[in-house]
Design a protein around this nucleic acid. Structure first.
Lengths: 325, 325
DNA sequence: ACTGCTGTTGTAACCGGTTACAAGAAAGTC
DNA sequence: GACTTTCTTGTAACCGGTTACAACAGCAGT
């Protein structure tokens, strides 16, 4: 095949011995295609690695496809995790000509309906999925919820990995830096407590949001008030970074006196170089979300998927001062 | 005109009494069009508010237009200002079918040349504009630099606004929270010093980066070391937020004892509700950058534009404790 | 064998632009 | 006045898909 010439619908048609129209019908899941024909065409498409040209489809459809992102508030727009997830989504939808649009939490005032919606930060009983269904817009949640299409990182499992990593290093005085409001925070705290209890240990809770400053102030205040621990698991990399900075300012050596583990594994954070953390596979979360959108459009039954996380050893974990008893 | 039917190139052609081809030639600045005809066609396009369909052009061109964003490093990706500027650019280029692509600082290894490039954080003698010119790629800088196309906020003027606001409130002990590395930081410090000197005052410098934690630590350390001031101008909203938090933790009342002014005016920051700040018009910066890209493509002579900023009074400025002497 | 119905496929027009080529008009040359 | 040459414009094919409609095959009923 000539380099530089992309495979078109005509190539598929010729190769499969059918007409353009039939290939197009297969592409769009039109029901009036014989099963045998559909299979043959799909085989050829797979073999020639065919992807329809988004510009041509837009031209025919007189409109582009859009993927809405529904947030619960405005400020998550600036949170590193969200920025990176959005970027990953964007880089994966752009080649298919799908455009991302930001939606306010109040979906009832959408100007134009998007082709599909990704619902972020959904909580139990969130009205958004039901509303979208009533408008015929397929939707996928980021976060787990039975009965819906969803994708979520393994928050509980990742928290266990982090906690067990600290325990294996010999730590007995554990603390969790976080806050119980969101589903994510709750899962991460639960994983942490589960692992600790399994080892017969208790976990002190230090309340904090997900931000750097939040982590800094919470840890500094707790330490100044006499709270002591040797192993700290923070619910986010940012709060972990804040914790490390606070300990540094308090003259507490990391990891000499206190070990710190974060969560998310965002490569763009300056601290990523040194922080021990549980890394999420953000590109894969994005890819899975988009695959689920396709399923939802195709009328498949709802399902969810947990995306594995990975412990990323760094320089902020070491055995506790006294060593293992 | 029927609602729902966009004006097409055929409408223009009919209305102007020429053929599709001629309209297309006018659209693309093809030189072989009589001046009289071009003027007539352009008048009709303006009157009917015509915008060519990006999908149709992509289809003909066999490729889409891309706008590259060149950063000097990776981590600015997560800085709030950059995130919001990128979002503004995106929302303005998307309707024209132009796609944003992130470029590494090392432009020599670009996979495919973008249609144009926005160079961020350019410093004097930056090799990127020259390199791009040699490859025939038009570029526009964010930040001012003679001889190039550029757009920049009025950093110096904004810093003067902020400082004069503090001075007008009665402050005599001023401090600047920032760092002299980047062009932006230098301009903002210069504007601050200019205004202070004009009022016969001096300015203490507290070194900090642009982040929340950086501002927090810098201010806290300075204050604990005995540095005193009643009016603080921070080079960014984030460092201002850090400063406010630090002062709060130190038991210093804002604005009772110390007044704080930030810079950027990012609506999505939680502190924006209360912080006195100098607001940038980010959508306008984006729009101007895109207009300059058009100029650059059209071969116009290089020019730059400062975008005005605006003092946004908040709740973090009040007269100093002793009142005006 | 004829009719009517259903299920499947081909045909061709169309989406809104671009552009190679041909054709006309105007101007210069002998 | 006939012949080039140079500008300017119209024509029609094309980019890669979608889809209304026609056509055809197979089958049941009579």
């Amino acid at each position: 095949m000539n380099p530089g010439t992309r495979t078109t619908i005509d190539d598929i048609a010729r190769e499969a011995g059918v007409s353009k129209g039939t290939v197009s019908r297969v592409l769009n899941g039109h029901p009036t295609v014989a099963d045998r024909t559909r299979a043959r065409v799909q085989a050829v498409m797979a073999r020639l690695d065919y992807a329809p040209d988004p510009a041509a489809r837009h031209l025919s459809w007189r409109t582009g496809q859009t993927l809405g992102l529904s947030l619960d508030r405005d400020d998550p727009l600036l949170h590193p995790y969200h920025v990176l997830l959005r970027r990953a989504l964007e880089s994966q939808t752009a080649p298919q000509g799908v455009q991302l649009v930001d939606l306010r939490a109040d979906l009832t005032r959408m100007a134009r309906l998007p082709s599909a919606v990704l619902v972020m930060h959904a909580v139990e009983g969130d009205p958004r999925p039901a509303y979208l269904r009533s408008r015929g817009v397929p939707c996928v949640l980021i976060g787990h919820q039975p009965g819906e299409f969803w994708v979520a990182p393994e928050d509980v499992g990742g928290a266990r990995l982090a906690t067990e990593h600290l325990i294996r290093a010999g730590h007995r005085q554990l603390a969790f830096l976080g806050h119980g409001h969101s589903q994510v925070a709750q899962d991460r705290e639960r994983g942490c407590r589960d692992s600790a209890h399994a080892a017969g240990l208790d976990v002190q809770a230090i309340t904090s949001d997900f931000t750097v400053l939040g982590g800094y102030r919470a840890v500094r205040r707790a330490w100044e008030n006499g709270t002591r621990f040797t192993g700290l698991f923070a619910q986010s990399d940012e709060s972990a970074a804040g914790a490390v900075a606070a300990l540094e300012d308090l003259g507490v050596d990391v990891p000499g006196q206190v070990s710190v583990v974060g969560f998310d594994g965002l490569p763009e954070l300056p601290i990523r170089q040194t922080l021990t953390t549980v890394a999420q596979d953000i590109p894969r979360i994005a890819a899975t979300a988009l695959a689920l959108v396709q399923d939802a459009i195709g009328g498949q039954p709802a399902r969810g998927e947990f995306i594995p996380v990975q412990l990323l050893p760094g320089a902020t974990v070491a055995p506790p001062p006294g060593g293992t008893p």
